[in-house]
Write a protein that binds this DNA or RNA. Structure first.
Length: 595
DNA sequence: GCGGATCAC
DNA sequence: TATGGTGATCCGC
């Protein structure tokens, strides 16, 4: 968007930042939200938007918390500045030499032989809604209830963005049309799109419901196509068959492709040539904020040491480790050089590290009411643990106080846990201690999460790298929960399966035990809507999943390699109709500092 | 290993 | 009136 730095929005921002670090300016900038750098905001007067948001928020508990965070960050930044000034008095030649050696080594890892693309659907949720109701195309519209997950480009003209509270959005644009989220609908559309992407790279990597990475090197050579032609073709095919427009970035690695896909949004594509000088030149003028992993906080910290664009990293390179740590230094070094990973692989090959659930509610101080919420949370987590087929060796309790302050407490139960009763029993002491330590504690959120997971999956037979028969969808669908893996790691996987084999019997008892739960808390009447046929189904995990698999196999539009909708690709396969998910969120998070 | 903080979507 | 949920990683202790 503003790599050339010539937008009015950017000018305004710079002016605001340059006038000094007065509490208000940085706070207002922060209140603008994390998605300021997204497309569609170019022609917006951010000063004015900032005022509206500020005035709508002022005095609220949320605002006060943001203000405190901003003050803390300002203090931290002052420390960084002082530390930098101190370091600059020292002899840094040793550090400089080591850094340059590292950069030289990094340079040797540069691989310009691959064509990686990042595909990003344009205002995905809003676009899908517009397909059903074309009249929405002509009005500012957003998806999401309390907080917006997506909005169309008409809404963006008013300064509206994802992540914004809807009452604030209404202040910016009173005629804004708000739609509830319909995750199943978006999932179905995403499946259509993925079916097409699989033609171009069967091993593509879903980054979220509306984003994916592909390595199209083979496709291009086999079809004797230029990467840009191939991407033109794929985008046209997606638009033609699914009626959803996508943007794409083409580059030598995933990091660059991701940046490039934002360059010509919406419905555009951009290529960074596989050429070292072109890449370095591109990065030199690129604001660090554009890089995945640099958020509002890191942006401010970097700015305070004179790093605004990736090119500014080089002159400061000798200081970075001491100021921000080794990982951050390595990350910035890769940003400067424009390096990133070229290996694209299905998300199913990534190992899940945690399963959790959390929910916001009206302020609660009553202890009995809090216990009821905890029990409900435990039940929700049990469902997710059953669905993902894990137990947890560690249980994490998360609370958000009425002041918006977030606390977590964790414990290691004597055995791996997954049943609601266990989750509740082991979480309750943590909650009780918090109540004891914080007199008059009032909560607005409760969450539970299991980490140090132990898989309870059956030993499967489906490996992604192996020749899986697409036709076997129906029969294999029941077993698709097996972990995929490739190469040498298969041995490890096999060992892991052996380890959990003895825990299988317990899992088998899950459904029986679930029905033994107290009557008033056992949601026997709950039903789930099938995301495919939309009919309500009983809330039993296995019956539900079997039904969905049946529906999927019947309505397969194209033969996708294996089943891209399983596992992570459709994180919310089983979702309550009304449940909220993230703004096009997913259960996997990128490795921020690792390529 | 724990808890806070940051980030993505 | 009112500011989300899921998952990952890093840092300081």
């Amino acid at each position: 968007m503003d790599s050339s730095g010539d937008q009015p929005a950017d000018d305004g921002k710079q002016r605001e930042r340059a006038q000094g670090e007065s509490d208000n300016d940085t706070l207002k900038y922060s209140l603008l939200g994390p998605s300021l750098t997204k497309a569609g905001q170019d022609a917006v007067d951010q000063q004015k938007v900032s005022e509206v948001i500020y005035n709508a928020s002022k005095g609220s508990k949320f605002f006060n918390r943001e203000q405190e965070r901003d003050r803390n960050l300002t203090v931290k930044i002052e420390r960084i500045r002082k530390e930098k000034a101190r370091l600059e008095q020292l002899d840094l030649s040793h550090d400089l030499r080591k850094v340059d050696e590292f950069l030289a080594e990094l340079e040797l890892t540069r691989d310009l032989s691959q064509h990686v693309i990042h595909v990003d659907c344009d205002a995905f949720f809003a676009a899908v809604e517009e397909l059903d109701r074309p009249e929405l195309k002509t009005v500012p519209m957003a998806v999401g209830k309390g907080v917006l997950t997506t909005c169309n480009y008409l809404a963006r003209k008013f300064g509206i963005r994802s992540g914004m509270a809807s009452f604030v959005a209404k202040k910016l644009c009173p005629q804004l049309v708000l739609l509830p989220q319909n995750y199943e609908k978006y999932t179905a559309k995403a499946k259509e799109i993925r079916a097409i992407m699989a033609e171009y790279d069967p091993l593509f990597e879903s980054a979220s419901i509306d984003e994916a990475y592909l390595n199209i090197t083979s496709y291009c050579s086999e079809n004797e196509l230029d990467p840009e032609e191939a991407v033109q073709r794929m985008r046209a095919e997606i638009l033609e068959t699914t009626k959803v427009s996508v943007s794409a970035g083409i580059a030598a690695n995933a990091k660059l492709a991701k940046i490039a896909s934002n360059q010509n949004k919406p419905n555009g594509q951009f290529r960074i040539p596989n050429d070292r000088e072109a890449i370095m030149e591109f990065m030199r003028h690129l604001p660090v904020r554009k890089v995945n992993g640099v958020g509002r906080v890191f942006e401010r910290e970097l700015e305070s040491v004179g790093i605004k664009n990736c090119g500014d990293i080089y002159p400061q390179r000798a200081l970075l480790t001491k100021l921000f740590g080794e990982k951050a230094f390595q990350f910035l070094a890769q940003c400067y050089l424009g390096l990133g990973r070229t290996k694209i692989q299905p998300v199913e090959t990534y190992e899940r590290k945690s399963v959790g659930t959390e929910a916001t509610f009206h302020e609660i101080g009553d202890k009995e009411e809090l216990r009821a919420k905890l029990w409900w949370t435990a039940q929700e987590l049990e469902k997710d643990m059953a669905r993902t087929q894990f137990k947890g060796r560690t249980l994490v309790l998360k609370v958000k106080l009425h002041t918006f302050e977030v606390l977590t407490r964790q414990t290691a139960p004597p055995r791996a846990v997954f049943q609601a009763k266990d989750l509740y029993d082991f979480a309750l002491p943590m909650l009780a201690k918090l109540e004891k330590d914080i007199p008059g504690m009032k909560l607005r959120l409760l969450g539970l999460r299991c980490t140090h997971l132990v898989s309870t999956k059956k030993a499967g037979i489906n490996f992604f790298g192996a020749a899986v028969q697409p036709k076997s969808n129906v029969s294999s669908a029941v077993h698709v929960n097996s972990e995929y893996d490739i190469g040498a790691e298969e041995a490890f996987e096999e060992a892991a399966r052996q380890e959990v084999q003895d825990e299988m019997n317990e899992l088998e008892k899950l459904s029986q035990e679930a029905s033994d739960l107290p009557e008033e808390t056992n949601p026997t009447t709950t039903t789930w809507d099938c995301p495919i046929c939309a009919r309500p189904q009983v809330a039993d995990d296995r019956i539900f999943n079997d039904h969905v698999d049946f529906c999927l196999s019947r309505q397969t539009i194209r033969e996708v390699v294996q089943d891209t909708t399983q596992g992570v690709a459709v994180p919310g396969r089983k979702r309550k109709t009304a449940s909220q998910s993230g703004p096009e969120g997913d259960i996997r998070q990128k490795r921020l500092f690792f390529q």
